[in-house]
């Protein structure tokens, strides 16, 4: 079992988070280095996620490392019934670290228990996706100059959206004030509100997205997916109400930045893209530097 794995954002202390963000800034200044020369990183994608896989693979290649792996479980030995335990043991014979995405929740924690090399969780079902959380934080830090005392507005699917749950956990070190804006069906689950109360984090809740984020520093949008709704009429209504339009930004703070884990569907109108407050494309690019920082930390090559 390797102690260096990154499975859940809660595996990292406040200091470790800050050091990753610091390291990402260094990689942004100088992304091409040969610190992983001779290292082999496996990317095991038991379910496809081109965006995340390309980001990790580019991070490794820009550091001089090599990639092995698969991008779809159908082409892997697990489709022949091999257990995850056996796949991990087999791959760890070849690779110095494993980046893994798996459709089952807890798969990454289990892999980290049986693996002799570090595991980096690139998403386990609806559970955790720590590199996304860290790149969100890096984007917040870059655009606001600080992580402390920010007003953060989380919008959309707050029930199933794992990125917002992890963001609450990770931001809890920095005295944020949250506003949760979600339709009734997709409200923030109680366990995260209890978490906020326990940690002295202020939050309010609203059910409509209007211009009600004028004191916000960060507007974090998430995808509202049709399959989350039992009542399709309700989905159609919500879909129209939960679309961010450029006009809504009129009275927002000048430092407001809009984040979105991407891909988006209809929740951000394309006319927002030209606003200087739209930050979601740069946010995706920040993922590269964060993943360079993560892979380097996991392999002690900082």
């Amino acid at each position: 079992m390797s102690k260096n794995s990154l499975v859940s954002i809660s595996d990292y202390s406040k200091e470790e988070i800050l050091s990753i963000l610091d390291s990402a800034a260094n990689f942004e200044a100088n992304p091409n280095r040969k610190t992983l020369d001779g290292k082999v990183i496996a990317t095991l994608f038991f379910e496809p996620s081109t965006r995340t896989r390309l980001s990790f693979e580019t991070a490794v290649i820009r550091l001089g490392g090599s990639i092995i792996g698969f991008s779809d479980a159908a082409t892997s030995s697990s489709s022949k019934g091999e257990t995850l335990n056996d796949t991990i043991h087999m791959v760890s014979c070849y690779a110095d670290a494993i980046v893994m995405r798996h459709p089952l929740e807890g798969a990454a924690r289990y892999a980290s228990e049986v693996s002799p090399v570090p595991i980096i969780n690139a998403g386990d079902g609806a559970n955790q996706h720590p590199s996304q959380t860290l790149l969100d934080m890096y984007s917040i830090l870059k655009t606001q100059g600080t992580l402390e005392n920010l007003n953060i507005c989380l919008v959309g699917d707050l029930k199933y959206g794992r990125t917002v749950h992890s963001l609450i956990m990770a931001m809890s070190y920095f005295n944020p004030t949250f506003k949760f804006i979600a339709p009734e069906e997709l409200k923030m689950p109680d366990e995260y509100k209890i978490f906020c109360k326990k940690n002295g984090i202020k939050y309010t809740e609203e059910t409509e997205l209007t211009g009600n984020f004028n004191d916000a520093d960060i507007l974090y949008m998430t995808r509202v997916q049709r399959e989350r709704f039992q009542d399709l009429m309700e989905y159609e209504r919500v879909k129209n109400v939960y679309t961010l339009k450029k006009e809504m930004l009129e009275n927002s703070k000048p430092n407001l930045r809009i984040l979105h884990p991407l891909p988006r569907v209809t929740e951000i109108d394309p006319n927002v893209d030209t606003s200087e407050k739209a930050y979601y494309f740069q946010q995706a690019q920040n993922g590269l530097y964060i993943r360079q920082a993560i892979v380097s930390k996991v392999l002690n090559q900082q």
Binding site: T83, L84, L104, E105, G106, A107, R109, Y110, N127, I194
Partner: peptide, 26 residues
């Protein structure tokens, strides 16, 4: 889905005892 021994952390949430799966974190 896989031959994994279950492990739960015993936690207290507002006076109520909760079990948290260390794998899926539910």
């Amino acid at each position: 889905h896989q031959p994994v021994t279950t492990r739960f952390k015993v936690m207290k949430n507002e006076e109520e005892l909760m079990l948290k799966c260390i794998y899926c974190e539910r």
